[in-house]
Amino acid sequence: MKRMTFTELVDGLSSWGDVFVRTKKGFEKDGNLHKAKSKNSPKEFLLPREEMLFVAYGSGDDMRVMEANPSKKRVVVGALPCDMHGLNVTEKNFLSEPKDPYFAKRKDNTVFVTELCQYATSTCFCRSFGIGPSSKMGDIVYFMLDDENIIAEPLTDRGRELLSWNKYEDAKDEDIRIMEEKLAEAENISQDLSLSIDHKKQREVYGSEVFKEAVFHCLNCGACTFVCPTCYCFDIRDIKRKDFVIRERMWDSCMYFIYSLEASGHNPRKERFKRAQNRVMHKFFYQPLQYGVYGCTGCGRCIDVCPAGYDIRETVLKVQNYLEVKNG
């Protein structure tokens, strides 16, 4: 690893594209690094809250379509291992065939510089998902030694090309020692739930009393799904204006009544508990079955943001326990 200052890193990267730094709120342009988890994950860089897919105008034979081409080059600095893992999980949906062209373009145009995590809190449980505070991910990875000095290393070809790494001196043994100590502390705090869910038993828990009870206090507000790095549900709408139509894509949430409302008027998730249940089922059963990876990274953001005191860990452990007891 090489030794440099945070400013040097950011300045060096700014020639490639706009730099967004982790702040209290999320990842903001030229922001000041917030030395803790941010409230929002960086998923908006690949799947924006609202995005225009195309504009159609004219009529009949003269109908024209102008497609969006998200080509802005951006650097996201300070994504934590849980954030980065979240994007890797989300990718499985958007980059498996047929690929989502907007997501793919954004990914090509975004450099992720991740930070090794010394910010574990009581809501962190990333170690349950095969990652942890010391997981190296992204194009470049760095560790904050103090408020300004960092040690960094490139992980991909792109990362190697972005900075003239040779001009920096190597990290001192002392730096590595500090890093290892801090990361070990964080590894200690982040919980490992020791998950052993049998995903194929999904039908045995779906609609069960265990869910009804575990999610009773959930408001179905959807705040958790917005801050989650892996929740990627979206809605597509055509917005009519006088002379043109815009096709927009925007975040949606399975917590909402209208999300699962069908054109016939039937709603398979009319009951509130089924909506709260779906968030857990999708992350802990359907995604592992479909993509071989949990749809949760243990970042704990949903727990932090929840106004109702809901903790997804409790539900997951209850469900796991229910299955174990049931199947002996």
């Binding site: 179905n220 959807g222 909402y256 009544f257």
Partner: peptide
Amino acid sequence: TRCYACRESCPMCYCEQ
């Protein structure tokens, strides 16, 4: 963010839709 926590927490917001 239009998360609607304000609506869902409100006892007066009981409309099914």
